[in-house]
Amino acid sequence: MSLTLFALTGAALVGLGVYGLLARPHMLRRIIAFNLIGSGLFLFFGAAAARGTGLDPIPQALIITGIVVALSASALAVGLVVALARSSGTAYLPDEEGRL
């Protein structure tokens, strides 16, 4: 029961993240959206790993690796957004809706 609940929550978080990615062009919002998608996938994965007898350690290790990978990508993305704002005065990509 709880596992299905967690898995479906994970799936819904992925959906939320996808919506944020497509509908919220401010780059900091998009970085948050990427993290939502990633964490939703991991929650789904964690629930799937708990279905058998005991908790499978391999997915847990993969998820920890994935969290560190997401942090690395977020760090570079955040740096690029600041550099973009410094050079162009906006946190939106050129030719995307949302220019103020």
Partner: peptide, 10 residues
């Protein structure tokens, strides 16, 4: 290049 890199990363 910054804008191109950010779009690439996205």
């Amino acid at each position: 290049a910054i804008a191109a890199a950010l779009r690439y990363l996205l």
